[in-house]
């Protein structure tokens, strides 16, 4: 298992585990970050952080701190 923050551009993967706690965990859940979901890294912001991901048909931006809290496996 690697972390979402290690994903390369345009790479697709599957979420294995959410390490975030409390509120961040809730928000990630409600935005579709759930174990088994596919996620793709789309684009990095001009200043290198945050990164835009495609999940469940929408784009969501996460800072690298939050992306680090998501465990993934490459497909």
């Amino acid at each position: 298992m690697i972390r979402l923050s290690e994903l390369e551009k345009n790479e697709e993967c599957r979420i294995v585990r959410i390490f975030a706690e409390d509120k961040v965990r809730l928000r990630l859940h409600s935005l579709g970050f759930i174990e088994g979901e596919r996620i793709k890294r789309v684009r990095v912001s001009v200043l290198g952080d945050p990164v835009m991901y495609e999940i469940d048909g929408t784009y969501v931006a996460l800072r690298c701190e939050e992306a680090f809290l998501i465990g993934i496996e490459r497909i």
Binding site: K23, V24, P50, M52, V60, A61, L62, R63, E65
Partner: peptide
């Protein structure tokens, strides 16, 4: 805090 933002079409 965290920054989790949906970017709508």
């Amino acid at each position: 805090s965290s920054f989790i933002l949906e970017l709508p079409p």
